[in-house]
């Protein structure tokens, strides 16, 4: 029984881990392209999920179309946010930029609570089968879908950055803004688009989690949980974000296992990633794949 539990938790960890990885990638995308640490990443999940939920329940739109419309909306939302709020702050100190994203996070979290209430709202059933049997383990269909979607997104990111024109422009901007600009890349466009893509992709993760757990303001906690993942992987590495997400997801669930079987402290898995975070910052602040800042005085 305990082995079964361990296996189940490992699978859960991997599934949650891929979701952390996706959100982490979105976070890194914004950080790489525009050097903004986005504390409002979790709100992208939240707003996306609520939008989709609202379209599905109030307007009775089929899931597929509702999903697409909410993605399009989030794309525009991300673009608008960058243009209206973040653009005036280009060149301001790090503290101001961080604070603005924190302000955004509070603002939208409260707005969503005001509009939709504090209770978790379930999505209307989307799959005819709720659970699927995989190697004798019960896995929720939505989770299977989420893993599929996450992997697709990751592959999409890889393709986008390697082959598409805009993706190359983004990488060039991340490498050196001035050189990119002198080569004719519109840095403003790149900044805005990176926010748009990040918001839309985060919304996918938001909808997936919403389908499984119901939509509530707890979703925005993903935005904070993503910090251990991206710090572990290295703040400016897309691959690192994925690996970090998987490790944190697994670690959380293993901590849950150890806690429930041996320690019985309760609630340990919520807090373990933050201890890990502190330890990483102490011994290897640039993470597994991040670039080191070398300074000599």
């Amino acid at each position: 029984m305990t082995f079964q539990l361990l296996l189940q938790l490992t699978i859960n960890g991997l599934i949650i881990g891929t979701l952390y990885g996706v959100v982490g990638m979105c976070f890194v995308l914004i950080y790489k392209a525009s050097q903004v640490v986005n504390f409002a990443q979790g709100e992208f999940l939240l707003i996306g999920a609520w939008t989709c939920w609202w379209l599905l329940t109030y307007w009775q739109i089929p899931f597929f179309w509702g999903f697409l419309v909410s993605l399009a909306f989030m794309m525009l939302f991300g673009l608008a946010l960058q243009i209206v709020v973040l653009r005036p702050l280009i060149g301001e100190p790090v503290i101001s930029v961080i604070m603005v994203t924190i302000g955004l996070s509070i603002f939208f979290q409260a707005l969503m609570k005001w509009m939709f209430g504090t209770f978790a709202q379930p999505f209307p059933p989307i799959f005819s089968v709720q659970k699927v049997d995989v190697f004798g383990l019960q896995v929720q269909t939505a989770y299977l879908m989420s893993t599929g979607v996450s992997l697709a997104i990751m592959a999409g990111f890889a393709w986008f950055f390697k082959y598409s024109r805009m993706g190359l422009a983004m990488r060039a901007t991340a490498f050196n803004q001035q050189v990119a600009q002198s080569l004719g890349i519109s840095v403003r466009q790149v900044f805005a688009l990176s926010w748009g893509i990040s918001a839309a992709v985060s919304a996918v993760a938001g909808v997936v989690v919403g389908i499984v757990n119901g939509v509530s303001s707890a979703l925005s906690f993903f935005g904070i949980k993503v910090f251990p993942a991206v710090i572990l992987g290295g703040l400016d590495s897309v691959l690192g974000a994925v690996v970090g997400g998987l490790i944190i997801g697994l670690l959380e669930n293993l901590a849950h296992y150890v806690d429930s079987q041996f320690l019985k402290w309760g609630n340990l898995y919520e807090i373990v990633p933050f201890y890990v975070l502190i330890i990483i910052l102490m011994i290897k602040p640039y993470g597994l794949f991040g670039t080191r800042d070398i300074e000599r005085v």
């Binding site: 005036p88 702050l89 101001s96 924190i102 509070i106 409260a110 005001w114």
Partner: peptide, 16 residues
């Protein structure tokens, strides 16, 4: 919620 939103809004407005 309005109070929370105001906190966020004043941070953003003051910084800009």
């Amino acid at each position: 919620y309005m109070r929370e939103m105001l906190i966020g809004a004043v941070i953003i407005l003051f910084l800009i």
